[in-house]
Design a binder for these strands. Structure first.
Length: 330
DNA sequence: AAAAGTTCCAACCGCAAGGGA
DNA sequence: GTCCCTTGCGGTTGGAACTTT
C-alpha cells in the first residue's frame, strides 16, 4: 500500500517556475504570510502547484535576503568544518550561514567543495609519488637509511606529528591495511580514484567495509591521531544528539564519506588544519586535545583556531542541550 | 561546427517527525 | 494510543549551460 500523495498530481504543474508564478507567490506571502498551511496556499493564490513546491520555491529562491553563488573562503571553511562535525545536516549548516539555503549548501558541497578537496588529494598524491621516486633514486645513489627533509615534508608535513606516533623520528605505518609491503608506496592511482569516484558518486553505506579492506591507498591512520575515538571530539551531549544519527565509521566516528577522504589524504586539507591539529592528539576518553606538554578541551582550543565556528558551535551546543536534535527538526 | 561529455543547480521525491483530533 | 495531515529534511534527478573533442 502506497502513501497518499500530498496533492493531486494530475492537476499540478511541475518543473521550473515562471516569473508570473514567482510574482504571485511572492506578493501573496509578503502580504498575507503563508497562513500556516502550505498545502492550501496554492489554491488560495490560484497556482497549479503542489504546496511543497511552493514552500520550496519560497524558501530557496523568493524569500528575502537570499544569497546565490559566490561562496567565500570563510563560508567554505564553515561548511567543511560543520560537515565534519555533524555530517550532512544541511539545515543546521545553513542556519549558520545567513542568506544561504540548505539546498544551496548541499549543491555547493556536492558539486564544488567535495571536488575541491578531492582535487587537492589527487595533487598531493602525485606530489607524494614524485617525492617517493626522487627519494628512491637518492637512496640508490648512496644516501641509504636517512630520510630527506623534502621527502618527509610530503609524507609527514608536520615534524611534530611524527613524534606522537612513536616518540622518535620513525615514520608511522602509513598502510594500516594488512599489506605492509613497501611496494604499496607505489599508489595505485587508477584504483584509488575509481574507489573515490564510486564512493562519492554513490551511497556510502553497505560497501564501506569491503572497500576499506581492499584499499590500496596510502593512508594516514586516523585512529592513531585521534586516540581511537574521534566522536569525543565533540562534547558528549552534542555528539549523542547529532552524530549518533550519521553514517559513521565505527572505529573513527567520522561521517563515512569524510572519514574516507581523510584516510585517503596524506597531506592535511586546506582550511581544516585545526581539525587535524599539529602536534595534538584527541584523547578518546575525555574529549580533550592533548600534546606532549599541554592538555586542552575542545571548547578551549576551538576559539583559538576558528573563532566564528567556535561561537556557532557553542550556540548550537546550547540549543542541543536544551532540545535534542531529531532527524527532521521543525 | 557539431557531437559528446561534464558540470551545476532548481526542483522533485519519499521519509520521518510533530501535532492536533 | 493511534490516525491523519502537514512540515521539514536530505537524497536524487532532469535538463540547461558549458566545455572538450
Amino acid at each position: 500500500m502506497g502513501r497518499a500523495p500530498c496533492c493531486d498530481k494530475a492537476n499540478v504543474k511541475k518543473g521550473p517556475w515562471s516569473p508570473e508564478e514567482d510574482a504571485k507567490l511572492k506578493s501573496y506571502i509578503e502580504q498575507n504570510g503563508t497562513g500556516g498551511n502550505w498545502i492550501a496556499l496554492p489554491q488560495k493564490i490560484g497556482l497549479k502547484r503542489c504546496g511543497k513546491s511552493c514552500r520550496l520555491r519560497w524558501l530557496n529562491y523568493l524569500r528575502p535576503n537570499i544569497k546565490h553563488g559566490g561562496f567565500s573562503e570563510e563560508e567554505d571553511n564553515i561548511i567543511c568544518s560543520l560537515y565534519i562535525s555533524i555530517g550532512s545536516r544541511w539545515s543546521i549548516i545553513a542556519a549558520q550561514l545567513p542568506g544561504r539555503t540548505d539546498n544551496d549548501i548541499k549543491n555547493y558541497w556536492n558539486t564544488r567543495l567535495k571536488k575541491k578537496l578531492l582535487g587537492k588529494q589527487r595533487k598531493d598524491n602525485q606530489q607524494a609519488r614524485r617525492a617517493l621516486k626522487q627519494e628512491a633514486k637518492r637512496v640508490e645513489d648512496g644516501g641509504l637509511g636517512v630520510v630527506s627533509d623534502a621527502f618527509r615534508s610530503v609524507y609527514w608535513p608536520d615534524q611534530q606529528q611524527m613524534t606522537m606516533f612513536d616518540g622518535v623520528n620513525n615514520p608511522p605505518d602509513l598502510h594500516h591495511n594488512n599489506n605492509n609491503d613497501n611496494n604499496n608506496n607505489n599508489i595505485d592511482d587508477h584504483a584509488s580514484i575509481r574507489k573515490l569516484l564510486i564512493k562519492l558518486g554513490g551511497r556510502f553505506s553497505s560497501d564501506e567495509g569491503t572497500s576499506r579492506a581492499s584499499s590500496s591507498v596510502s593512508v594516514m591512520p586516523t585512529q592513531q591521531i585521534y586516540g581511537g575515538d574521534t566522536m569525543n571530539l565533540m562534547q558528549p551531549s552534542f555528539h549523542e544528539g547529532v552524530n549518533s544519527q550519521l553514517m559513521q565509521n565505527p572505529s573513527t566516528g567520522f561521517p563515512t564519506e569524510l572519514d574516507e577522504m581523510f584516510q585517503c589524504n596524506t597531506v592535511k586539507l586546506e582550511g581544516l588544519d585545526y581539525f587535524y591539529g599539529t602536534a595534538n592528539m584527541i584523547d578518546g576518553n575525555n574529549g580533550s586535545i592533548s600534546s606532549a606538554s599541554t592538555s586542552m578541551n575542545w571548547t578551549e582550543v576551538s576559539p583559538l583556531i576558528y573563532p566564528t565556528l567556535s561561537a556557532t558551535y557553542q550556540g548550537m551546543q546550547q540549543c542541543l542541550l536544551e532540545e535534542p536534535v531529531h532527524h527532521g527538526t521543525q
